[in-house]
């Protein structure tokens, strides 16, 4: 493999035919002697080396994401009893995960949870980013404080909000009204805690994107008499449009897949008023050990992810 560097194309192919060339250290063994061909080399077919450098990522992702999801799909088609896989039952698990009225209620609740959280978190993140992008005093301090909930884990966020909204010993004037005992308020509290941990990432991403909006463009718009709102709608939003979509995708997936916050804050209660698909998948698998049914729920969830992900990607493509 030693001289592969010098003569570009043919020997590259030779390298490529050695299937196990994933090691980046290959480079060390190659002499750096042949300087004149440097530029040509740079542009020569780089597939083998490129794939080699990507190989660790591919192996990791295949082993811990692709193989497991294939396995989960298989699992969802079988009858299971604790850790034992029984008979092939086709789509029976899916009939239970999609067909029953309880399942449809789960799906509806999940959609409410995801969409309300999105409708609050995305505009809130954008508004905060717009404010934090202005020049003012103590900007760094405000940024640090406002982004703080991002580092709080879902477990801790659940604890914090549970304790803050405690009807007996909490500091808020709830008058011994327990929000977690009321089905609507429990969902409200869950969404509040969810927005609280997720708006900072949205705001950070928006802030990063806002810094790419050309200042001259804003000045020109202002000279042309565009007011604040006009500048936001006609200049800022179009420039950061792809970020808005990316944030929406990220948060949508995050909310759909969220188990920990729901599990630790409300555990689906009261009376499954905050039961989401992801929580159901978790409980079927880990509480009731219905692994097949749990897998079916998580595949349904995966389906929703793909559906929404693909829809956004299409929007992103068509807008470009």
């Amino acid at each position: 493999m030693g001289g592969a560097r010098g003569a570009p194309v043919p020997q590259r192919t030779a390298v490529g035919q050695t299937p196990d060339a994933p090691d980046p250290r290959d480079d060390q063994r190659r002499p750096s002697a042949s300087r004149p061909a440097a530029q040509r080399r740079w542009r020569s077919s780089s597939a083998p080396l490129s794939i080699g450098l990507t190989a660790p990522v591919l192996v990791l992702v295949a082993l811990v994401s692709v193989v497991p999801i294939v396995y989960a799909t298989r699992l969802s088609l079988f009858e299971t009893q604790f850790m034992n896989i029984g008979e092939f039952i086709g789509l029976d698990n899916f009939r239970q995960a999609l067909g029953t009225s309880a399942a449809r209620a789960d799906i509806l609740r999940t959609l409410v949870y995801v969409s309300v959280s999105l409708v609050v978190a995305v505009p809130l993140g954008l508004a905060l980013a717009l404010m934090l992008n202005l020049p003012f005093r103590f900007r760094a301090a405000f940024r640090a404080v406002i982004f703080l909930p991002w580092v709080v884990s879902q477990t801790v966020a659940a604890l914090l909000w549970k304790w803050l909204l405690n009807p007996d010993y909490g500091p808020l004037p709830l008058g011994s009204f327990d929000p977690f005992a009321d089905s609507v308020m429990a969902m409200g509290a869950l969404i509040l805690a969810n927005v609280w941990i997720s708006y900072p990432l949205a705001a950070m991403l928006f802030l990063a994107a806002l810094q790419t909006v050309p200042g001259e463009l804003l000045e020109a718009a202002e000279v042309d008499g565009a007011g604040k709102l006009r500048r936001l709608v006609s200049v800022i939003l179009p420039t950061i449009k792809s970020t808005v979509l990316i944030v929406t995708i990220m948060l949508t997936l995050f909310f759909f897949n969220m188990v920990t916050l729901v599990y630790t804050l409300t555990a689906g209660g009261p009376h499954s008023a905050t039961q989401t698909l992801s929580l159901q998948a978790f409980r079927e698998s880990f509480q009731f050990f219905h692994l097949g049914l749990g897998a079916a729920y998580s595949i349904v969830l995966f389906g929703f992810n793909i559906l929404f992900g693909a829809a956004y990607v299409r929007v992103l493509r068509s807008e470009k």
Binding site: S50, I51, L58, V66, P68, F282, G309
Partner: peptide, 30 residues
């Protein structure tokens, strides 16, 4: 490699890697 060593099909490969982030954590837990 993704940035400096392009080849045919690389975009698709990267896209596949990124798509795995859509797999719900709960699905692959068991």
């Amino acid at each position: 490699a993704a940035s400096r060593l392009p080849f045919r099909g690389q975009r698709a490969m990267l896209f596949c890697i990124l798509t795995t982030t859509m797999i719900p954590g709960i699905a692959i837990l068991v």
